[in-house]
Nucleic acid binder design. Sequence first.
DNA 1: GTCGCTGCAAAGTCTTTGCAGAGAG
DNA 2: CTCTCTGCAAAGACTTTGCAGCGAC
Lengths: 162, 162
Amino acid sequence: MRTVTDFTERTVEYEKLLNDFKALLKSTGQKFTIQREVILDELYNSDEHLTPEELYNRIQEKHPTLKTGIATVYRTLSLLEDSDMVTSLSFGAQGKKYELGAKEHHDHMICTRCGEITEFVDAQIEERQHKIADDLGFKMEDHSMQIYGICKKCQEHAQTKQ
Amino acid sequence: MRTVTDFTERTVEYEKLLNDFKALLKSTGQKFTIQREVILDELYNSDEHLTPEELYNRIQEKHPTLKTGIATVYRTLSLLEDSDMVTSLSFGAQGKKYELGAKEHHDHMICTRCGEITEFVDAQIEERQHKIADDLGFKMEDHSMQIYGICKKCQEHAQTKQ
DNA sequence: GTCGCTGCAAAGTCTTTGCAGAGAG
DNA sequence: CTCTCTGCAAAGACTTTGCAGCGAC
């Protein structure tokens, strides 16, 4: 197997993630390829929530020799999503955005001005969600919450930037 | 103007909605057409959240002589959404679903098995959301919450239906 | 070696747009 | 009458799929 050397410095957390991914692939007879590694790495090293195309562009920039196809990005994202390693978010805008699901659960606050996404968690809300599902006889598997509005930065720049 | 006579019985609430729509159109020099009326009517009379295509199909069934095009459905939905008369939801599945935004605010519980959407509201959560936004210096404009899981019905039918 | 994976390009979806005729105001 | 709206079909945007060669195991 070829080895990619110009990766961002790896953390213990990332190594764990990588091993989980390898284990998952192995268990289903699938293969661990450079492309899959690069995609996981890029997802891990992006704080942001990326669209398939953004991810594809970043990978092309960082690994120009690899010539990763957009189809592979889509295929890998589906694979990762099926295994719950990444989560997809579909907000108002068209297209989905993906983020590593390995992170702790959290909700999203989206700035309608600049598109910035801030993550947060609130124990009280989490608790209520469980209760609501129970009350309605619903077996909760997942949930998500978004708050839309204008972030601090955009409020401050409201005068200068229109 | 031609008049559509086979509409579902109209309520006061619907009349208000219709008038709002007419007023909105008038204020921007746009026209009130049969197609727009039919689309609003169908949205109003559907408890469910509809995709543009579902809406289109229903309208074709109910008003076969009108031959409303799907393009008009899309155009009208955009129009209504821009004016905040309808809200679009984009869940995991591809495509958006629309609902009348004139209804009271509520959140959604989505069955991952059958796709059914149940609405609910929880005052406590609403309150927390405001507080969280405030704490982060975020000017909240809107929010939405979804709980995903398996509805009561699907849990019961779990044995028979696979 | 085998069999899954990849890039490419073609095919699908879903949504938007251009246009000429129809219809609201 | 004017100017917007509509249906149709063509064009776009985003995703998925088929296939032959490549590469992990």
